[in-house]
Each structure stands twice: as C-alpha cells, then as structure tokens.
C-alpha cells in the first residue's frame, strides 16, 4: 500500500511516489493507493503548473487504471476539512473513513508513505 500525504509541487514526494507506484504496478504487484492529509490535493481538478516551471502530473493518476491500479482510497476527513468533495477530484476514488482505512492498513505486507 502506498500512502500519499503531501501536497503536489511543493515537494517531490508525491511525484516520485507516483513514479514508484507505476513501476511497482508494472511488476504486477497488488497495489492500493491511499490519499491522506494534503495528499488529497494531488487529485484536485484544474491544476495548471505551466507558470511554476514544474511538470504537472495530476492527469497521470487517471492512467493508473490502465496499470491495473484500481484500489484508490481517500480519507473522508482529509477531504471534508479541505472543503472538497469527490466531484473536485480528477479520478474516481473510494471515500473511506479512518477506521476502514486503518483496517486496510492492517492487512498489508508493506506500507510506504510518500
């Protein structure tokens, strides 16, 4: 399981996290991706990075499906406290509460936070 917890662009963690997810998916690992905290901003619609000189990558999340990464989860509290709803996001993700995500975490062999 990969946990994305940083906003995009301000640090490289989310971008390099996504690179890791794509490679691991290519190795046919059963992956899930969870967005917690500022990680939810990675999925926000309408990002335009042309003015900051950094390559945008929000659309890459749409490609995850093509790599068979279908288990995308988002923490309901993180979303709500940022004034966002699932409609504000570039991909379909399953909105879960913390206990549900906690139970998923407990099932994992490996968890990597980015």
């Amino acid at each position: 399981m990969h946990v994305l917890r940083h906003a995009p662009h301000g640090t490289i963690y989310t971008y390099e996290g996504l690179e890791m997810i794509l490679i691991m998916a290519a190795y046919e690992q059963d992956l899930s991706v969870v967005f917690i905290g500022d990680g939810v901003y990675a999925l926000k619609k309408g990002q335009d990075t042309s003015g900051i000189g950094i390559k945008g990558f929000s659309k890459t999340f749409m490609a995850l499906d093509g790599y068979d990464v279908e288990k995308l989860y988002i923490d309901s509290v993180s979303l709500a406290e940022r004034g966002l709803t699932a409609d504000d996001l570039v991909v379909d993700v399953e909105v879960l509460d913390a206990e549900e995500i906690g139970r998923l975490m407990k099932e994992q062999d490996v968890i990597i936070h980015h």
Binding site: E19, M20, I23, M24, A26, Y27, Q29, D109, V110
Partner: peptide, 10 residues
C-alpha cells in the same frame, strides 16, 4: 538500480 529491485526487496 531500478525500482524493480525495490519491488523484489519488498
């Protein structure tokens, strides 16, 4: 090395 190696390590 590549990220594939990390997958192996995991």
């Amino acid at each position: 090395t590549g990220l594939g190696t990390l997958t192996d390590i995991a």
